[in-house]
Design a protein around this nucleic acid. Structure first.
Lengths: 205, 205
DNA sequence: CCTACCGATCGGTAGG
DNA sequence: CCTACCGATCGGTAGG
């Protein structure tokens, strides 16, 4: 779906890809309404009118970027969730993948987490569905952990899921790829804390 | 600072307050660039030109809203941090206050957490300083917990602070004031998980 | 892919 | 507080 293809009338797919990529960075840095078509053109060395040989509308690029972001998170975590590994290992690996996306594809992550609200009704519903499916992957993992005894029977599943996702999602606001900590290191520190909180029973089991 | 005052030349302070309040809601719902002066005027029943009898510029209202949001968090948590209560209790109380602001003043919280990036250089620096001071309140509390023995000596202070703040900040994206859980209940569930993770030593002490 | 342009809207001001 | 307006810019299109 993201692979290159050459349509009649449109130049080589590479140029379109350059435009979409530059647009993602601008949406991340200035927001959807803050980034103008003129800005996007400038970023790729074209006049704004020329962009419409490659894209159909500004909001279509937003939709495409949001869907790509959703796919990165979903396709990254789904195989981990489905693997037979022990639940705490799966959760740790999932948080690693999540933070890698936030760190290395911060433009797509930001559009998926932030700018999606500027989508029109239809596209927004699609993104919401993706978010729900993604959240379900996490919830099922935590539930598995309760069922297989890794976590206490009194575990607050909802709070745990929200804590994992909050830690992962908020990172787009502060994570610095040029900082001292790698995404994996950050993920492991969060995981250690949360898993330690989950692993301890309350004494009634 | 937020109390009503009547300046010469400006009509009763109540009208200005109505405008600022409505603007906060619009910035939260549509973003700074997504909300136009015409939108704001419509929300308070004025023509957009009339708004300038009460405000000087759109970006000045953004600055004011961001500063009000910062004050809510800082003034709410500072006395808790300074109280002599046991560290875990202070952290739990602080997270309650944080989530109350997110829940009951979601417009100010969203502007402070989200829309501040559209501020001009000067104002943005002021907000960054507020964020730093706020983060320091939390860091000092966690450090206190390590020093007084409530948390293990091997505690990952940075990760713990970020986990508290991530849980609190991300809530503006999902918390539903009309939902079943109150802000305090959400805060307590998060606190229980995180504090349990912090309270457990690693066996080398 | 550019030039030139479309109607609409932007934040903000003047003048009353 | 409104009317009328400012220059600038918006997303997008036509025509070549």
């Amino acid at each position: 779906m993201i692979e290159e293809r050459v349509d009649e009338g449109t130049p080589a797919g590479g140029q379109r890809e350059r435009i979409v990529h530059a647009t993602g960075k601008l949406f991340r840095d200035k927001g959807y309404y803050g980034a103008s078509m003129a800005d996007i053109g400038r970023a790729v060395g074209l006049e704004k009118g020329s962009l419409y040989s490659h894209i159909t509308a500004k909001h279509e690029v937003l939709r495409e970027l949001a869907e790509r972001g959703a796919a990165l998170f979903l396709d990254g975590v789904a195989p981990i969730a489905a693997s037979g590994d022990p639940t705490p290992l799966r959760l740790r690996a999932a948080l690693r993948v999540h933070l890698r996306v936030v760190a290395h594809d911060s433009d797509l992550a930001t559009v998926f987490l932030q700018e999606w609200r500027h989508l029109d009704e239809d596209a927004r519903c699609g993104i919401v569905r993706s978010r729900d499916r993604y959240e379900l992957l996490w919830r099922d993992m935590v539930r598995d952990g309760v069922r297989d005894g890794a976590f206490g029977a009194d575990t607050d599943v909802e709070a745990a899921v929200l804590l994992f996702l909050s830690a992962g999602n908020w990172a787009y606001q502060w994570f610095d790829p040029s900082g001292t900590l790698t995404p994996d290191e950050v993920a492991d520190r969060f995981s250690a804390l949360i898993l330690r909180g989950l692993g301890q029973r309350d004494g009634d089991e």
